[in-house]
Design a protein around this nucleic acid. Sequence first.
DNA 1: GCGCTTTACGCTGCGCGTAAGTATC
DNA 2: GATACTTACGCGCAGCGTAAAGCGC
Lengths: 304, 304
Amino acid sequence: MRPPDLSTRQLRAFLALAEQRNFTRAAQHSHLSQPAFSALIRTLEDSLGARLFDRDTRSVQLTPEGQLFEASARRLLDDAGQALQDLADHVALRKGRVRVAALPSLAAGWLPGVFAEYLAASPGIRVDLRDALSDACIAMVRGGEVDFALAATGAEPSAQGDLRSRRLCADGFHLVCRADHPLVREKRLTARKLAPWPFVQMARNSSVRQALDAALHPLRLNTQFEVEHLATVTGLVEAGLGISVVPALTLFHFRRDGVVTRPLPLPGLRRQLYLVQRREGSLSVAAQSLADLIVARLGELMVG
Amino acid sequence: MRPPDLSTRQLRAFLALAEQRNFTRAAQHSHLSQPAFSALIRTLEDSLGARLFDRDTRSVQLTPEGQLFEASARRLLDDAGQALQDLADHVALRKGRVRVAALPSLAAGWLPGVFAEYLAASPGIRVDLRDALSDACIAMVRGGEVDFALAATGAEPSAQGDLRSRRLCADGFHLVCRADHPLVREKRLTARKLAPWPFVQMARNSSVRQALDAALHPLRLNTQFEVEHLATVTGLVEAGLGISVVPALTLFHFRRDGVVTRPLPLPGLRRQLYLVQRREGSLSVAAQSLADLIVARLGELMVG
DNA sequence: GCGCTTTACGCTGCGCGTAAGTATC
DNA sequence: GATACTTACGCGCAGCGTAAAGCGC
């Protein structure tokens, strides 16, 4: 009672009457019978505690208080419409912002194509991409810096308390070496056969390295280099300074003359990729739709 | 359907739930049963076309779209409250502005006391006073520069087409002269007895002069001076340079030693004072209440 | 008397509360 | 099994439309 209720419906009726200055016309403009419209205005006046219109049979016009309220009513109605439109735009993917963290290998290779498809369909959405190693990706999810992450959570699959993970795919590994390398002619590749050759490793905190170490343990490789970026691996391999083993989704780095890739079907040698989000709270419509697209496209990729 | 309806009630419920994050508490905060409150939120979500809350049995929290809408909702509700409060303030005379035009004689003498009383009761109201001769006063009413005027419309009392006039009082006239003037000893004053003496006239377009001319016609006075301001009349009379005849409401100018005033009950010699406003459109609450006070106080004055 | 607003009066349906249902921990 | 949201359901009343009645010109 202390705060009188007010609805956009009342405001629209009020403004219609203020413009038409005629109950009958304003009523049909509002899709109401004239008596119903009259009652609506009366109710509004009562709840405001002020006469808004001077009506005598021949003319209807705003009182001074009505004029005062007219300005407020227009502004309120505009603002309400704006708020509704803004929300609708977000729901309809005409506006919005999605923040994604992804492993560098995904961020550089596979993900941009999906982003391009997504942005072509929803050009009003802004997408922020942070490329970082798994742990940093997950920290960003936890800290609310990103909506979700594409990472390789080595440990707990989906029970990290405040996180929720969904397994996307298991990325198989491939040998990469020069075309003139003896291993190319090897019929059947095994870990043991790789071990003697000079090897280019990724840094120890990379998901590639961790998957590799876990699968080959306790076998020791002949590590000659340990680098941060896959592009560096490419350079070293191409120069014939070593061989390496990398996940399928990173092979785009190695599609060049003189370099060969071969599937390496060793047991347990897969990099598990997960989509990670906070447990509490859902994704925004925009984030969810991007996540859905990622899942769908990655599904196709794995099948094909 | 195209513009969904929205009410302050819905916004309050939404914000209550956003704060409490618990349907039961938010419901009793809104003085509703929990199921009714639940339905209210559901209706809001449906009409907005967006899920605003993620609810599972154990926790209720805003979706990203809900967070977006929360900011809008707060602003909308604040603005609506502001508009309502502003209107209520005007109705309750805590805010407002009244513009009055009045004859100089009223503006200088009687009116300020009424204004003081009015402003003491309604300190939030601002009152603008324009002092002008009758015609100018009425022109200001017509032009919307003032809410109403206190003037002496010689001609049409209440049928000026776009104007509405209300007769306030008939201001009787008084002789003013020096205490040592022979007329002071006159038992019974008549127009003829005044005629020989040097006379101080007001300007021809003043209401005082017009009432005087109309009542005395065709008698001619011995006009020695013709001045614009009553204060000048006072000076001339006090110096013994002439006598004059002025309305009762201006006598405050002549309350000084050596000057005497005497009622002059000539037939037809009255200045009619009117409260003039536009025909169309009512006065604001503030203007109406000031007008009412003026009428009331002037009524008492005439009775007393 | 005409035009427009208000009043009168059934009626539908929205929205409430009570009570039972269901899911999650 | 306790807790909290949802569904089910009957009911009252706000709000609608139709029809009749004021009320200024």
